[in-house]
Design a protein around this nucleic acid. Structure first.
Lengths: 109, 109
DNA sequence: TTCATCCATCGACTTTAATCGATGTAATCC
DNA sequence: GGATTACATCGATTAAAGTCGATGGATGAA
């Protein structure tokens, strides 16, 4: 995970439609959802949502799998984990006193 | 931390200049850096960087403190921590099997 | 084979973000 | 008081992102 990758992931998440779609996909793990189902949830047109999906896919936050005529989308949780690791290392900067409260906050879930 | 706050923070980080500035400020914790020093590091004009700094401040990723004629900027690590907690809860969705590898990756630092 | 469905891509338009130079304001120094 | 430094804000320009309707290529159904 380098800076450019992190920026692509951050930019992908930094849009209400895309953040919501990603959250939906996390909720539906590991089954995934069809693109059409996500379009319906978004309230946007098919073409608009498709471009958002392309942004998420480019960032590795969703992966697609063809099932018959449907395109099943799944959340790329590994990508999110890598982003968080990147941010955490950034945050700590080698100093545990900064990182520990972060870990404490995360163990809650 | 609600969705809107998270979006503001994500958007603030999703720019090379702002991400770099935030990382610099983390590195200089807890002393902070003057705005001018950050401008020099950025290579941008003072006015351009100032607008980026305003975005970071609005997101809570930097906090300013006046010291004489200088404006000392410090990293808002709590805000980053809150974002990561938000993302992690999102990721887990109540299921530990998704969260555990994330925590394992974070304990490295 | 024909038709309908699912979805990506294209082209045009609108909105938003980024960048800069110039100006203004406040604090410090002489 | 006058000059200087540090920084924010304004206005204008340019670049990028978001949105939509329309088109086209698959795939499965009739």
């Amino acid at each position: 995970m380098n800076d450019d990758q992190a920026l692509v992931i951050l930019a992908a998440l930094a849009h209400p439609t895309r953040l919501k779609a990603f959250r939906q996909l996390v909720r539906y793990e590991p089954d995934g959802l069809s693109t059409g189902a996500l379009v319906d949830m978004s309230g946007l047109t098919q073409s608009t949502f498709s471009s958002h999906l392309a942004v998420l896919a480019k960032a590795g936050l969703v992966t697609a799998e063809k099932r018959g005529r449907l395109q099943i989308q799944r959340a790329g949780i590994d990508t999110l984990r890598e982003l968080m690791t990147y941010l955490a290392k950034d945050c700590c900067g080698g100093r545990a006193e900064l990182c520990e409260p972060l870990l404490a906050a995360l163990t809650c879930c």
